[in-house]
C-alpha cells in the first residue's frame, strides 16, 4: 500500500504497542543475558568481568559441541520428518472426508499433552524389557530388530527425535491447514476443469501458494529445535552419558547445576547467533529458488 502522512502515523501507532512490549520484555532480558556472558558469576558472589574467556572456553568444550550436534539432528528431524508429515496430513484433512474433524482433533492432541505424560508413555513404548515397540517387533517375527531404544547411546538420539517429531506434527498441521484456506477455490476448480491431476494440482498450485507459510514453518522448526528442552529433560535427562544432550539442556545444567551463570549465558549467545546464521542461509536459499 502507498504511504501518506496519515498512514505513517498509522504505522507508528500500529507497530508501537507490539514493539514496546517485545523490546521491553524479550529484547532487554536477552541483552542483559548477553552482558552476563562476559562475566564470571556463580549467582551468589559478586560478578567478575572476564572478557571473552567464556567464549574461548566454549570453543574448546567438546561436550557443548556434542550437544549442538544433537540439536542439528533435531533440526533435521523436524524439517524433514515433522514438516513433511504435517503437510501430508494437512493436505489429507483439508478435503471433504468423513471424520476429518475427528482426525484433525486427534492429530493435534500430542501438542497439548504435558511433557511428563509424553515421557512416561514413550518410555513404556521404548522400554527394552517389555516395551510396546519391542513386543510388536517380536509379534511380527522381527526378534532381531528389538533394541534398547533409549538406553543405547547410538540409538537414544534417534528415538528421542521420533518422539519430538510425533509431538509437534499437529502444530505444523494446523499452521498448514490455516494456510490452505488461503488458496481460492476458483483457481483449483479451474485447474480441475483443465484436467490437472491431484498430484500436479498439489505441486504446481497449492505448494507454491503456500510458500510464505512453509518458509515461516521452516524458521519455526529451526528455532524450536534449537530450543528443545522439555522433552529431553523428562525423557532421558540428556543421557545416557550425554548421548541426548542438547545445547539448551547443557546451558541449563551449566547455569543452575554448576552455577556458572556467565558460561551459561555464553552458550545461549552462541545458540542465538547459530540460529540467526541458519535462518539467514535459509532465506538466501529460498530467495534464490524463487527467482
Amino acid at each position: 500500500m502507498k504511504i501518506d502522512t496519515k498512514a505513517k502515523w498509522g504505522i507508528v501507532l500500529g507497530l508501537g504497542p507490539a514493539l514496546l512490549i517485545y523490546i521491553g520484555f524479550a529484547i532487554v532480558p536477552i541483552i542483559i543475558s548477553f552482558y552476563y556472558s562476559f562475566m564470571k558469576w556463580d549467582g551468589f558472589s559478586p560478578m567478575q568481568y572476564v572478557g571473552l574467556d567464556n567464549f574461548k572456553e566454549l570453543f574448546k568444550d567438546q561436550l557443548f559441541w556434542h550437544s549442538l550436534k544433537n540439536n542439528v539432528y533435531v533440526i533435521l528431524a523436524s524439517v524433514i520428518g515433522q514438516l513433511s508429515l504435517a503437510l501430508l496430513f494437512a493436505l489429507l484433512l483439508n478435503r471433504k472426508l468423513k471424520g476429518a474433524k475427528f482426525f484433525r482433533t486427534i492429530g493435534f492432541m500430542p501438542v497439548v499433552l504435558s511433557s511428563v505424560v509424553v515421557s512416561l508413555t514413550w518410555s513404556l513404548i521404548y522400554n527394552s524389557e517389555d516395551g510396546l515397540l519391542n513386543e510388536l517387533l517380536r509379534a511380527v517375527g522381527l526378534q532381531s530388530w528389538t533394541q534398547n531404544w533409549l538406553g543405547n547411546e547410538h540409538l537414544a538420539m534417534i528415538s528421542v527425535c521420533v518422539t519430538i517429531i510425533w509431538q509437534f506434527i499437529g502444530l505444523y498441521m494446523i499452521i498448514f491447514l490455516a494456510a490452505l484456506q488461503n488458496i481460492p477455490r476458483e483457481i483449483l476448480e479451474a485447474a480441475e476443469i483443465d484436467g490437472a491431476t491431484e498430484w500436479s494440482k498439489t505441486w504446481k498450485i497449492i505448494l507454491p501458494m503456500m510458500k510464505d507459510t512453509i518458509t515461516a514453518a521452516l524458521v519455526l522448526a529451526i528455532s524450536g529445535s534449537l530450543k528443545t528442552f522439555d522433552q529431553i529433560y523428562v525423557m532421558t535427562s540428556g543421557g545416557p552419558n550425554h548421548a541426548t544432550d542438547v545445547s539448551a539442556l547443557y546451558m541449563y545444567n551449566k547455569t543452575f547445576q554448576s552455577l556458572q551463570f556467565g558460561y551459561g549465558s555464553a552458550i545461549s549467545v552462541f545458540i542465538f547467533i547459530f540460529g540467526l546464521v541458519l535462518i539467514l542461509v535459509l532465506n538466501k536459499l529460498i530467495g534464490k529458488s524463487a527467482v
Binding site: 543405547n152 547411546e153 543421557g239 545416557p240 552419558n241 550425554h242 547445576q257 554448576s258 552455577l259
Partner: peptide, 20 residues
Amino acid sequence: PAELTQTLNNGLQGILTGSM
C-alpha cells in the same frame, strides 16, 4: 562440587553402556 558430580554421573552411565 556440582561440576565433578556431573562428570561422575555421566561417566557412570557411560560405564554401563560401555562408552567409558
